[in-house]
């Protein structure tokens, strides 16, 4: 079950498996229930491979957010359009706005991190929304800025560390979503 590579694991007593759960999306609760039933609640965890380490959700989100920050610094046309057009951003449902800058506040069925990463980058750079519309951040957003700020388009900050073979999906190669899905693995108690 474990891989040959020596991983630095943040959870004591856990070992890395080769299981890559991939996209959970709307089935997140169902899939978690399945893992609970198979491994036992508290006997498994999720992590993200990065170099020789396994990252916790919090650490992986730091890379996720850093990718958005780099994108902000290099793609002012898109971000200026967002600032000008949007009053807020959301991914799954407009209630996502209630998450503010806290990744832990997740009320929708599927996890949403893009909107929170965007708010945190804007907060850190002293910027605010000045528009009138609540813009969806998704590949099928009606707004170009909403589409291009989706995790499927924003480039991951360290593409060399995305695990091969990549998991295929609706995301672009080397995107934040490519990292998120390809590097996500299951850890289980020894």
């Amino acid at each position: 079950m474990g891989t040959q590579k020596k991983w630095e694991i943040p959870y004591q007593g856990f070992q890395v498996t080769d299981i890559r759960p991939g996209l959970l999306g709307q089935e997140k609760e169902k899939r978690i229930a399945e893992y609970n039933s198979f491994y036992g609640e508290g006997n498994w965890n999720m992590g993200w491979k990065f170099d020789s380490r396994i990252l916790t959700l919090e650490s992986a989100l730091r890379l996720y957010e850093r990718s958005y920050e780099i994108h902000f610094l290099g793609n002012r046309v898109i971000w200026n359009d967002l600032l000008r057009s949007a009053s807020e951003v959301w991914v799954e449902e407009t209630a996502d706005i209630e998450s503010g800058v806290d990744y832990a506040i997740q009320k929708a069925k599927a996890a949403h991190y893009e909107d929170i990463a965007i708010r945190r980058v804007l907060r850190d750079w002293g910027k605010s929304f000045t528009g009138k519309e609540s813009i969806r951040v998704r590949g099928d957003s009606q707004h170009l800025c909403g589409k291009l700020l989706s995790s499927q388009y924003v480039s991951f900050v360290a593409p060399a560390f995305i695990e091969e073979p990549r998991l295929e999906g609706w995301w672009k190669r080397n995107s934040v979503e490519d990292f998120w899905q390809s590097n996500k693995i299951i850890l289980v108690k020894k």
Partner: peptide, 16 residues
């Protein structure tokens, strides 16, 4: 939405 002035190398998005 306002008046914009572009110099070479700059870009601007006009939404629907």
């Amino acid at each position: 939405e306002g008046n914009i002035h572009l110099s070479s190398g700059e870009a601007y998005i006009v939404n629907p």
